[in-house]
Amino acid sequence: MKPELELTSQSDLDIVEAAHWLPPQAPMEMPEQQLERPRVRLGGRRFLPSLIFRQRV
């Protein structure tokens, strides 16, 4: 099969991403996963695990 684009000196200067370069459009849902537990506040202080791995914000 012969590709549409050829490496000629002119096309070298003009290469841009073409629509047919892209993979097929077939969307799939990807729900974001929960990895951190919601922070629990006890007596006004952050509780574990955020107490242990406290972040500098």
């Binding site: 799939m28 849902e29 990807m30 729900p31 974001e32 996963q33 929960q34 990895l35 951190e36 791995f53 972040q55 500098r56 914000v57």
Partner: peptide
């Protein structure tokens, strides 16, 4: 797809 979309962790790198 159903299980591996990673969230950004709260806070700044290196731990966030």
């Amino acid at each position: 797809a159903e299980s591996c979309a990673l969230p950004e962790l709260t806070g700044r790198p290196p731990f966030g």
